[in-house]
Computed example of a mutant assay.
Amino acid sequence: MKRQVVLIAVGLLIAAVALAGCGGQGPTGQGGNAPAGQGQATGSVVIKYAVVGPDEHPYTIMATKFKELVEAKTNGQVQVTIFPNAQLGSEREMAEGVRMGTIQMTTVTTDGTLPAWVPELQIFSLPYLFRDRDHAYKVMDGDIGKELGDKLLAQGLRSLGFCELGWRHFTNNVRPILKPEDAQGLKIRVQEAKVWFGLVKALGATPTPIPFGELYTALQQRTVDGEENPVATIRSMKFYEVQKYLTLDGHTYSPGSVLINSKFYDGLSPDIQKAIQDSATEAILYQRQVIAQKETEDLQFLKDKGMEVAEPDRNAFVEVTKNVPEEVADMVPLELVDRVRNTK
């Protein structure tokens, strides 16, 4: 009997030691040793992908296509959870979350919050710089885009490429803007960057920085008279409910930066890294095509909702804003501006 008791005790001791050796814990984040975002029990890679807009917003379209592609390419080994509608914060907070590693991925407006870390990204905010979409794509997908991506990487943000937000236009709730002087005295919401202040001031309006997630309320409460965004954003964010006039001046082309935390990415296996990059590249091409095709539909939708749409004398706007590049030359070198202009 004593011998049986001893054997049982020894068995329990061995089991306890084995359990202790396993850590006695579950997946990573609860005592395991796998890389951040990677489950120890299943080997799955979990990605939190945060975006600022609703389901139909350009960035959510990008995130949704990426999720579909990367989960298929990895047979479900990579699992993506999308957090739309600024659930995880403003664009600045989401970008900072990716830098810190609390969020794995985000897509944010390239020339919005990111110039806080890479001032040269304000190249996309310079007025009337890009000739057309093809010109913009060649810049983003070529050497200039790679150089800008390298600068982001130095800040802990790995660029997976640039998707589409689109051509930005002014809206307001006071009067049509057909010529630069029509903008004088208006309070226009802008992103918090020197170049946006320079653009709006050149038109005689007052630049007012407001977080994107608070913009609808600011327009509704008349905190500002107007804003500027692509037609897809104006539709998806329902700005047509609180704005009457749309001016199709196309002052800038605005891309979205698809970003992943660099340490998280570096901790993944090469095949998973390739699947993530390939999926991002494919999703970007898909998303660009979708947004470009929707532009005519979105514009008609805004008209049907009662917005008055005007096509101004663009040359007059070009003339009054021609000195903006010199005003921000300390952040966006004029040599870079010339390289963009000369990209064929």
Rank of each mutant, 00 (worst) to 15 (best):
F212R: 14
P230A: 15
Q191F: 13
N172C: 02
F170G: 09
A218D: 07
V174H: 01
I177W: 08
F162T: 10
T206C: 11
E192P: 08
V195H: 03
P180Y: 06
G185A: 01
A232H: 08
L219D: 05
G213C: 06
K151R: 12
R189V: 14
L178Q: 09
C163S: 15
A202C: 05
T171F: 07
S236D: 06
T206D: 07
W196R: 13
Q184C: 03
T217F: 02
G161L: 06
Q221G: 08
E228M: 13
A183S: 06
E228V: 13
E192N: 15
K194C: 05
R189F: 02
G204D: 07
P209V: 02
P207H: 05
G185R: 03
R235D: 11
Y240F: 14
V242Y: 04
W196G: 07
P230I: 02
R158P: 15
A193P: 01
W196K: 09
I188E: 08
E147Y: 10
V190S: 00
G156E: 07
V174D: 01
T208M: 12
G213T: 09
Q220W: 04
G149I: 09
G198Q: 07
T217H: 07
T171E: 08
H169S: 15
L160W: 08
N172K: 03
E181H: 08
